[in-house]
Amino acid sequence: MDTLNTGTPPKTWLVESILVTLFCCLPAGIVGIINASKVESLYHQGDIEGANRASAEAGKWTRIGLIAGIVVGVLYAIYMFVIVGSSGLFNS
């Protein structure tokens, strides 16, 4: 069945999506994994154009999830550093 294309399929962003699932935002990661399967399906149906578009879309959302996770995490750490740091200062 999967004989239409014998080249290398476009990047599915599966690995990055799993990382997003495990490290920051579960919903973004799950959507990423579903998008990854869409890339593969389209490619093996012979729709290389559609697969490339799905790949770009998957990449965009996975990157947004990843960057949002890192930004929120870093902001949180800075915020807590200021709060905990200053309360520690007042307590001592």
Binding site: D2, T6, G7, T8, P9, K11, T12, L14, V15, I18, T21, G29, I30, I33, I34, A36, S37, E40, S41, H44
Partner: peptide
Amino acid sequence: DATRPLKGKWLVVRRTLYGRVAILVCLVVV
């Protein structure tokens, strides 16, 4: 992902371990 284009057996490895079925298995495992 970093090796492009993939050739021969690596293409088979990719399709087996990272293809559509494998992706759905990942989803179910999660």
